[in-house]
Nucleic acid binder design. Structure first.
Lengths: 163, 163
DNA sequence: CACTTTGTTCAAGGAAGATTGAATTATGGG
DNA sequence: CCCATAATTCAATCTTCCTTGAACAAAGTG
């Protein structure tokens, strides 16, 4: 049976957890997601789902869903040890890797959505049936230019953060 | 009395409003904020609070609060015309200006918060009373390095977007 | 093949946050 | 100074999203 003491994070670890909870809040992520990444970051070692449930005092459901999100953006890796059925989770702390995951899984899809939406918008403005007010067309082109600029910015930021 | 027709945005304008509503959603802004900016952007002219209330079908309270947020980040300018007590609101559509407002009013304060929090974290880890686990200190330094990198990134992005 | 352990799913409940609208405060004109 | 109009505030309500926990699925073991 595993030791029952220190099942609660130490004060210093608690501070790390709060740090990531607040970061997550800025990114409008659920509190549990910040907590999970925070604990994994603070511990710096592999933990099981049950460890997270016990040490953070959250439900299995929250832990499972939170871990899915974090794996989705490449912020957490899962591994296994032979003869053990548990999943072992570990925080990814390499900034370049984190950035790469974020760009690929979050930003790319949002850019694509914006693409579609801009195309639809363009079509709506050009459709004579919609009687687009004067000057609207010019302003929509400005949106396009914003979007193009943002798109060209991504690789620039990307390379900077890898330095 | 003002004309009562076309009190509702045209289909093309509606599309612009939806566009900004979705953008706002990514930034976790209330729907009403996206709607207000969208309508002002689409119209390209000065509108009163009452115009917004009528054309968007939102309450005066929402309009007032939404406009405050938008003015706060410099996305909306207010002006007056002599002999008229109303406020006239207008969308800021210059990207450099928008970026500057965002950096100054949003990012700067968040960076500062992160600063404080990192300092507190550093102190907690260094405090012997907290019995910080082994290696935690190294990982917290890594956080510092992330933060420094992000800080140096801001002016870079800033200049790029002004080009 | 039944059993045990581990992880996932999802409907119900709860918490956080947005919206409303009426009361309140500001502002300019008569 | 009072009135009329414009804008803000804020408590109550509604909505949206997060969390929970029990039921379910998966997967290894004897």
């Amino acid at each position: 049976m595993a030791s029952v003491c220190s099942v609660t994070p130490s004060p210093a670890e608690q501070e790390v957890i709060e740090f990531f909870t607040h970061i997550g809040r800025y990114l409008s992520l659920p509190r549990s997601v910040g907590q999970i990444y925070g604990l994994l970051f603070a511990k710096g070692e592999k933990l099981t789902l049950d460890d997270l449930v016990q040490q953070l005092g959250i439900s299995k459901g929250s832990a499972s869903q939170g871990l899915r999100v974090l794996r989705g953006v490449g912020a957490v890796r899962v591994s296994h040890i032979p003869g053990d059925r548990k999943d072992y989770f570990e925080a990814e702390t390499e900034l370049p890797t984190l950035i790469r995951g974020f760009l690929r899984d979050q930003l790319a899809v949002k850019m694509e959505h914006a693409d579609e939406r801009l195309a639809r918008l363009q079509a709506a403005v050009d459709d004579p049936a919609n009687a687009a007010p004067d000057g609207l067309s010019v302003r929509v082109e400005r949106l396009q230019s914003w979007h193009n600029k943002a798109r060209r910015l991504v690789p620039l930021v990307s390379t900077f953060l890898k330095m």
